[in-house]
Design a binder for these strands. Structure first.
Lengths: 151, 151
DNA sequence: CGGGCGGTGGGAAATTGTGGGAATCGGTGG
DNA sequence: CCACCGATTCCCACAATTTCCCACCGCCCG
């Protein structure tokens, strides 16, 4: 499982050095193969080890093609899913289109989220995090899955 | 399986270079033979490896001939299906009628969607994608297949 | 203080994308 | 039936991009 927030830098060619502590796990899990795609709600990227992604892709592909909501999800997620591979230096190369989508400049945040990573532009990450902290949870309607949650 | 978004260009002759990462798979799957047809809902083209298309054509042909919706689907999809073949440089030649249908100008987006590709004019793709992102998923009626989907 | 590891950058070679030209095929009109 | 014109297909060459590899630098730890 992936955890933690890491400040990372993209070089001029769009390469991102995966923090060392994750590398071994990524290599043993998927031989260094990852998939990056866009998040459908926020301007950030999702990065999965290949086997994790394949499960998700399977679920998405089983959805009915004629349903417009399903079709939209497929187009966004499968349509933007890009194969990545750790290079000899433990870096991945992010294609320009994904960099653009997430407004990634030089410094970014790589956030461990269990079976995947999220990659945010550093500025966006900080802004959003501050936002999340400000929201008054008590004022919100809790969906039933959360009502009984104990942390 | 095909995934990812690729910016491609059509040259003056209507030729489109298939990104290299897909070529090998296309050749081994269908010996370089593809079928292009129109999408029933959007102004884009669908491109299938020949064997994938043959399954779909079979499904379409089994639909009841007297049902007008089925009839319309058959006419659109089978009626516009065009044989394409990768040339020596890994390019396909799109006939003018299909180019016109999808309003393809010089730069287009080739979107991997599992067993097929979608080909969009770049401007249309971007406009539609932004549209899809704006929609608030929560406000929509989710089909049961999606309600429990965990990504 | 020295060695090693992780992060960063850059350069060179291989590969891919793009365009153009020439030959061939097909169609049409004389 | 032949000749000519147009369109298509095949092939080659150049340019740009990508990928791979190596070297440097700084930091941390021993």
């Amino acid at each position: 499982m992936f955890r933690g927030a890491n400040k990372v830098t993209l070089d001029a060619k769009g390469r991102l050095a995966m923090p060392t502590r994750y590398r071994e796990r990524i290599v043993e899990r998927s031989n260094g193969r990852l998939i990056a795609t866009v998040d459908r709600a926020d301007r950030c990227l999702l990065i999965y080890p290949l086997p994790e992604w394949e499960e998700i892709e399977l679920k998405l592909r089983r959805l009915p093609t004629l349903n417009p909501v399903a079709r939209r999800l497929q187009r966004l997620m499968i349509g933007h899913a890009t194969d990545l591979e750790l290079d000899g230096s433990g870096r991945i190369l992010l294609p320009p289109s994904l960099r653009e989508y997430a407004a990634l400049s030089r410094t970014a945040m790589l956030i461990g989220q269990g079976n995947r990573f999220e990659l945010w532009d550093e500025g966006l990450w900080n802004a959003n995090r501050d936002q999340w902290l400000k929201v008054d949870e008590a004022a919100e309607e809790l969906p039933p899955e959360l009502a009984t949650l104990s942390l």
